[in-house]
Deep mutational scan, measured.
Amino acid sequence: NQASVVANQLIPINTALTLVMMRSEVVTPVGIPAEDIPRLVSMQVNRAVPLGTTLMPDMVRGYA
């Protein structure tokens, strides 16, 4: 089972991601792999991401 990136807090739209906003968790469906967390830092979300939501590739500008 692969860990995915999950929002550690509410992340408002257009917010640049920081390490404290994300955690890794084994979830279904699988989202962005946890090993990509360092790559996600400073990328912006293109929608509001509620606490506990799995980050999907289409939620992060420039990721996919």
Score class of each variant (00 low, 15 high):
Leu17Ala: 00
Gln9Cys: 05
Met22Arg: 00
Met59Ala: 09
Thr54Cys: 05
Met43Asn: 04
Val45Ala: 10
Gln9Val: 13
Gly52Asp: 07
Pro33Val: 13
Ile32Leu: 08
Val41Arg: 09
Gln44Asp: 04
Val45Cys: 05
Gly52Tyr: 06
Ala48Cys: 06
Ile37Phe: 03
Val49Leu: 15
Gly62Met: 08
Val20Lys: 14
Pro38Ala: 14
Gln44Leu: 12
Pro33Leu: 12
Ile11Leu: 13
Pro29Asp: 09
Ala64Met: 13
Ser42Ala: 15
Glu35Ala: 11
Pro29Gly: 04
Tyr63Gln: 04
Ser42Val: 03
Asn46Arg: 11
Arg47Trp: 11
Pro12Val: 07
Asn46Asp: 12
Ile13Arg: 07
Ser4Tyr: 04
Arg23Trp: 03
Ile32Gly: 01
Arg61Gly: 13
Ala64His: 11
Arg23Ile: 05
Val6Phe: 02
Val60Glu: 00
Asn1Pro: 15
Ala34Cys: 15
Pro29Thr: 05
Val27Asn: 03
Leu10Ser: 15
Thr18Lys: 06
Asp58Asn: 13
Met22Gln: 00
Val20Gly: 09
Leu19Phe: 11
Val27His: 05
Pro57Ser: 15
Ile13Met: 12
Met21Cys: 03
Ser4Cys: 05
Ala7Glu: 01
Gly52Val: 02
Val49Met: 06
Val49Arg: 03
Glu25Pro: 01
Val49Tyr: 02
Ala64Leu: 09
Val6Gln: 05
Val5Pro: 02
Asn1Arg: 03
Ala64Trp: 03
Arg47Ser: 15
Thr54Val: 11
Pro50Met: 13
Gln2Ser: 08
Ala3Gln: 06
Gln2Glu: 15
Val5Arg: 00
Asn46Ala: 13
Asp58Ser: 12
Gly31Arg: 02
Glu35Gly: 06
Gln2Arg: 03
Asp36Ser: 10
Leu55Asn: 00
Val60Ala: 01
Gly52Leu: 05
Val6Thr: 11
Pro33Gly: 09
Gln44Trp: 09
Thr15His: 07
Ala48Pro: 06
Met59Asn: 06
Leu51Glu: 13
Val45Glu: 00
Val20Ala: 13
Pro29Ala: 05
Asn14Asp: 14
Val27Tyr: 02
Arg61Lys: 11
Arg47Phe: 09
Ala34Gln: 10
Ala48Tyr: 08
Ala3Gly: 13
Val26Pro: 15
Asn1Thr: 15
Thr53Phe: 14
Ser42Asp: 09
Ala48Arg: 10
Val41Gly: 03
Ala16Ile: 09
Pro33Lys: 13
Ile11Val: 11
Val5Phe: 02
Gly31Gln: 03
Val20Tyr: 15
Met22Phe: 10
Met56Pro: 01
Ala64Arg: 06
Asp58Val: 09
Ala64Gln: 09
Asn8Ser: 15
Ile11Tyr: 00
Pro38Asn: 11
Glu25His: 08
Ser4Phe: 03
Ser24Gly: 15
Leu51His: 12
Pro29Ser: 05
Leu10Val: 10
Asp58Lys: 06
Ser24Gln: 10
Ser42Phe: 12
Val41Cys: 05
Asn14Leu: 10
Pro50Glu: 14
Asp36Arg: 06
Thr54Phe: 02
Asn1Ala: 15
Asn8Cys: 05
Asn8Ala: 08
Leu55Val: 07
Leu40Ile: 13
Ala3Trp: 08
Ala64Asp: 05
Gly52Thr: 03
Thr54Lys: 04
Gln2Lys: 04
Asp36Lys: 07
Leu19Met: 15
Leu17Met: 09
Val5Lys: 01
Met56Gln: 10
Ser24Arg: 09
Arg23Met: 05
Ile13Leu: 08
Met43Ala: 08
Thr18Ile: 05
Gly62Asp: 10
Ala3Asp: 10
Pro29Asn: 07
Ser4Trp: 02
Val6Arg: 03
Asn46Thr: 12
Val60Trp: 02
Arg23Glu: 03
Leu51Asp: 13
Val5Tyr: 02
Gly62Val: 04
Ser4Pro: 00
Pro57Trp: 06
Asn8Leu: 07
Ile13His: 13
Ser24Val: 12
Met56Cys: 11
Arg47His: 10
Gln9Ser: 10
Leu10Met: 10
Gln44Ser: 11
Val60Cys: 03
Gly31Cys: 04
Asp36Met: 08
Thr18Gly: 04
Arg23Lys: 07
Gln44Thr: 12
Ala3Tyr: 14
Ala16Cys: 10
Val5Ile: 15
Pro38Arg: 06
Leu51Asn: 06
Pro38Lys: 14
Ala34Asp: 15
Leu10Gln: 13
Ala64Glu: 10
Val45Ile: 11
Ala64Thr: 15
Gly62Tyr: 10
Pro50Thr: 14
Asn14Trp: 10
Val41Ile: 13
Leu10Asn: 13
Arg47Thr: 11
Ala48Asp: 13
Met59Phe: 15
Met21Asp: 03
Val41Leu: 14
Asn8Pro: 02
Val49Ser: 02
Thr53Gln: 10
Arg23Gly: 05
Ala7Arg: 01
Pro33His: 10
Met21Asn: 06
Gly31Leu: 02
Leu51Trp: 13
Pro50Gln: 11
Ile13Pro: 09
Ile32Asn: 00
Ala16Gln: 08
Val41Lys: 06
Thr18Tyr: 03
Ala3Ile: 09
Arg39Asp: 04
Glu35Phe: 09
Val27Leu: 09
Val30Gly: 09
Thr15Gln: 11
Leu55Arg: 01
Ala34Phe: 07
Leu10His: 14
Ala7Phe: 02
Val5Ser: 03
Asp58Leu: 15
Ala64Val: 09
Leu17Val: 04
Gly62Gln: 09
Thr15Gly: 07
Met21Ala: 05
Ala64Ile: 13
Ile13Gly: 14
Asn14Thr: 04
Thr28Val: 10
Thr18Arg: 10
Val26Asp: 15
Tyr63Gly: 04
Gln44Pro: 08
Met22Cys: 03
Met59Leu: 05
Val26Gly: 07
Ile37Leu: 13
Ile11Ala: 01
Leu10Tyr: 13
Pro38Glu: 10
Ser42Arg: 09
Pro38Ile: 14
Gln44Phe: 14
Asn1Leu: 11
Val20Asn: 13
Val26Cys: 05
Ile32Pro: 00
Ala34Met: 12
Arg23Pro: 01
Ala3Ser: 13
Thr53Val: 14
Glu25Gly: 08
Pro33Ala: 13
Thr18His: 04
Leu19Glu: 04
Pro50Lys: 12
Ile11Asn: 01
Thr18Ser: 08
Val6Trp: 02
Pro12Gly: 08
Val60Phe: 04
Met43Tyr: 13
Ser24Phe: 10
Thr15Pro: 00
Ala34Trp: 09
Gln9Tyr: 14
Leu55Ile: 14
Val30Glu: 15
Met56Asn: 11
Asp58Cys: 13
Ser4Gly: 06
Met43Phe: 12
Pro29Arg: 03
Asn1Gly: 14
Tyr63Arg: 03
Arg23Gln: 04
Met56Val: 13
Gly31Phe: 01
Pro12Gln: 12
Ala34Gly: 11
Val60Ile: 12
Val30Arg: 03
Pro57Met: 10
Leu17Ile: 10
Arg23Tyr: 04
Val45Trp: 00
Gln44Arg: 11
